[in-house]
């Protein structure tokens, strides 16, 4: 695939926004940073660095509320989302790795795939480590893996312009009209130095790997899990923001006209009721069991074998969102300590 020279990244954004809805992370002025729609006439400079936004891009594909079917009293009707072409602009490598993970998990899910196929992914490679991230330790960044994005932006060291790496036929097609000159001089060297810089900054997080080893060796006692469980408020924040979390629950509502709408909505395995059966039996009744489950799902070897990657992409969002202080550093960072 080709690499091009791009003087002005905003020109690319405006171009892509002409024929699709384009989303980029924006500050809302009230303490929030969200994926917001950006129009083709928006000249706001891209701010590629810094912490990833509170939410990854998973909500664009695995919708938090998705209508699955309707029932009108006589028949069931399946419901697929109405999709329009869209671009997610400025995705970090960790979030692109997470999309790849979910692409695999939801490979046979028509709702996910309908949304996903309508989407162009534009990545940006980080030059510095973000504050809680450890992508280099779980092999999800800072370089965007091959085939994980349609287009990838790499900032030049002199900050005068960019390289644009094309990762797919859809990516090539999307920029064809821009007629960007091909140029990969120095690109690889810059990427390698970015990778080294980020890895160095994340070196202190190597203790997380000890935690992963202890977790997989079954060396974490039930008491330790229960102590951690006492800190779990059951808020569902970790599973909401985790870019690979995929559990859902049904929500069936009857409208005024009697029509039934059956949605699926994001769920969380940290809720006590997640596995509770109608009989009252609950295989994961204690908070410690549920906390353990969550981390096994992220770092357990059997899952890594299934998906070819950890369920954790090292974005650190769970650390920020957990009111009980048991995000990835609070759990995996602790359980590996001798």
């Amino acid at each position: 695939m080709s690499t091009h020279e791009l003087a002005e990244v905003e020109r690319l954004r405006r171009h892509l926004a002409q024929s699709r809805r384009l989303y980029e992370v924006r500050d809302d002025g009230q303490g929030g940073r969200h994926w917001q729609e950006v129009g083709p006439k928006d000249f706001t400079p891209l701010e590629p660095e810094g912490d990833p936004p509170p939410f990854s891009a998973k909500l664009f594909f695995f919708a938090e509320r998705e209508l699955l079917f309707r029932f009108d009293g006589g028949q069931f009707y399946s419901s697929l989302p109405e999709v329009r072409p869209q671009a997610i602009f400025g995705l970090h490598a960790c979030d692109l790795q997470a999309i790849a993970y979910q692409d695999r998990f939801f490979a046979q899910d028509p709702h996910y795939q309908a949304r996903r196929h309508a989407t162009l992914l534009v990545g940006v490679e980080c030059r510095e480590s973000c504050s809680n991230g450890f992508c280099s330790l779980v092999e999800s960044g800072p370089l965007v893996g091959d085939g994980l994005a349609d287009l990838v932006l790499v900032r030049r060291d002199d900050a005068r312009g960019w390289w644009l790496r094309v990762g797919s036929a859809a990516g090539a097609e999307a920029i064809r009209e821009l007629r960007l000159p091909t140029n990969l001089d120095g690109c690889q060297a810059t990427r390698e130095s970015n990778a080294a810089r980020v890895a160095l900054a994340q070196l202190h997080d190597r203790e997380l790997l000890d935690g992963v080893a202890a977790l997989n060796a079954g060396q974490v006692s039930a008491d330790t899990w229960e102590t951690l469980g006492t800190h779990c408020f059951g808020c569902s924040g970790c599973t909401q923001v985790c870019p690979t979390c995929s559990c859902f629950a049904p929500l069936e509502q009857v409208g005024a006209s009697g029509e039934v709408q059956h949605e699926r909505v994001w769920d969380s395995c940290l809720y006590e009721g997640f596995q509770a059966e109608a009989s009252g039996h609950n295989p994961s009744a204690s908070p410690g069991q549920r906390v353990q489950r969550f981390w096994l799902h992220k770092f357990g070897e059997p899952f890594r074998e299934q998906f070819g990657h950890y369920g954790c992409v090292g974005c650190g969002r769970c650390d920020r969102v957990c009111p009980g202080g048991i995000g990835v550093h609070g759990v995996i960072g602790e359980v590996g300590r001798p």
Partner: peptide, 11 residues
């Protein structure tokens, strides 16, 4: 309203 996001910069 389909969901909420927390505001990291909220005091």
């Amino acid at each position: 309203v389909v969901g909420v996001e927390p505001q990291p910069g909220h005091p």
